[in-house]
């Protein structure tokens, strides 16, 4: 049975006459231990899908189940402990005036965990940061270290699922390699399951066994990594993505489509 099962999610955002349909019939399943990717053009709804799974939006229709529990029937706090999110921006997502120890303690306090000190130490160790980082502020860390703190914050509650929204796109490629390796190690060690959003097909190919391609609120195609490597893509948008990804084709400038 799949760990995450999403079926037929519709979501509208915006009030009154400005209301727009943002997600249209989103369905996919993710097995335990798998990394499932989401790619697609800017504004196609990738972050919104993650927000729905994380419970940050609640007014969608359809069904989202994790480990057999549906979102409606589950206890909110329990859901949140199971499903954690890591955001794109390692600068914006950490409170600038809080020490790293406070940032990691906050979710533990909300969920009334004991033994907070030990848990913080453990999470920092899991992301490869030593105890000396505890008392620093975010501005005293490099971009890669900040992203590690953001991952540690997601890990302190011992979730089963991490939702990763462009977790490396603000980082240099050398730091990206460290963070992607870390995700792979953590997946093994902690038996995690990931949903990963990225605009970089090579990152998706490296991390994910399968991924969905989104366009304008819909999933246009679900592909396995093997199909991608063999170039077996069918949706025109996926092909454009594959062709534009990682390189610029001087011979064939793209057609305008604003």
């Amino acid at each position: 049975m799949s760990l995450i099962s999403i079926s037929d999610i519709d979501l509208h955002l915006g009030a009154g006459t400005r209301s727009r349909q943002i997600l249209d019939g989103i369905s996919f399943d993710v097995d335990e231990g798998q990394t499932f990717g989401l790619v697609g053009e800017s504004g196609s709804g990738k972050s919104t899908v993650l927000r729905c799974i994380a419970g940050l939006y609640r007014h969608w229709t359809g069904s989202i189940a994790v480990d057999g529990d549906t979102f409606e029937s589950a206890d909110r706090l329990a859901w949140c402990r199971k499903v954690q999110m890591v955001f794109q921006d390692p600068y914006g997502s950490l409170h600038p005036k809080h020490r790293i120890s406070d940032i990691l303690a906050e979710p533990l306090q909300i969920h009334r965990f004991g033994d907070i000190d030990r848990r913080i130490g453990e999470a920092l160790e899991q992301v490869g940061l030593g105890g000396q980082f505890r008392y620093r502020y975010p501005h005293q860390l490099s971009g890669g270290q900040r992203q590690r703190v953001a991952i540690a914050r997601a890990l302190v509650l011992r979730p089963r699922i991490l939702l990763l929204d462009e977790p490396t796109s603000a980082l240099d490629v050398s730091i990206q390699a460290e963070i992607l390796n870390l995700f792979k190690d953590l997946r093994e060690e902690l038996n995690l399951t990931y949903v990963l959003v990225s605009h970089d097909l090579a990152v998706i190919d490296h991390m994910c066994s399968a991924f969905a391609v989104m366009q304008a609120g819909k999933i246009v195609e679900v592909l396995t990594r093997d199909a991608l490597d063999a170039g077996q893509v069918s949706a025109p948008y996926t092909r454009a993505l594959l062709e534009a990804s990682g390189h610029y084709d001087l011979a064939a400038p793209p057609s305008a489509q604003s």
């Binding site: 490629v173 990206q176 390699a177 390796n181 792979k184 097909l201 190919d205 490296h206 490597d229 594959l242």
Partner: peptide, 13 residues
């Protein structure tokens, strides 16, 4: 350190 499509590696250098 770059991942590349079609050149699968377990870890990136």
């Amino acid at each position: 350190s770059l991942p590349r499509i079609g050149q699968r590696r377990d870890r990136l250098s």
